[in-house]
């Protein structure tokens, strides 16, 4: 008897595809749910956090690392005058990003370009994947 497992084995790929689709920028549904929006990526040794904070100087952004979470805090000021239209969010904002890996707090860097904040957090040595060499006897 031959059992065709092909559909079963394809499932992980289908799931991947589903998530890839869901994460395509054009499908972003939570764009306006939380402010400011953040993107998080990682590679073997670092975590990258990007956040869209237009109109705020890097000096006015408060970045704190505490107990496994990254907190981005700041204030968006608005000008005085008679408003015809106000759509840009103003006032205090805060966003907490949970980091589930051990990090090296001394090597964190942050910079701002075109209203996008970039934070690079190096992972701690113990969180990095390590190759274990096997000795043949």
């Amino acid at each position: 008897m031959v059992i065709d497992f092909s559909s079963f084995y394809n499932l992980p790929r289908q799931l991947d595809k589903f998530f890839d689709d869901a994460w395509r920028p054009s499908m972003i549904s939570q764009r306006r749910n939380a402010y400011p929006p953040v993107n998080i990526s990682e590679d073997k040794s670092r975590i990258y956090v990007y956040s869209e904070i237009p109109g705020v100087d890097i000096e006015d952004v408060d970045i704190t690392l505490s107990d496994g979470s990254l907190v981005i805090k700041g204030n968006r000021k608005h000008g005085k005058g008679s408003y015809y239209r106000q759509e840009r969010p103003a006032g205090l904002f805060q966003r907490v990003v949970n980091l589930n890996v051990a990090i090296n707090p001394d090597g964190v860097t942050a910079k701002m370009k075109d209203g996008v904040l970039e934070i690079v957090i190096p992972k701690a040595d113990e969180a990095m994947p390590r190759k274990i060499s096997i000795k043949a006897e």
């Binding site: 005058g81 239209r85 840009r88």
Partner: peptide
């Protein structure tokens, strides 16, 4: 994807100031 950027329009004595959020 195409977005309509968030915009503030403020009138002051000297004229109109338009601010648009366009990160990136």
């Amino acid at each position: 994807p195409r977005f309509s950027p968030n915009t503030d329009i403020i009138e002051k004595e000297d004229g109109f100031h338009i601010y648009m959020d366009m990160p990136g």
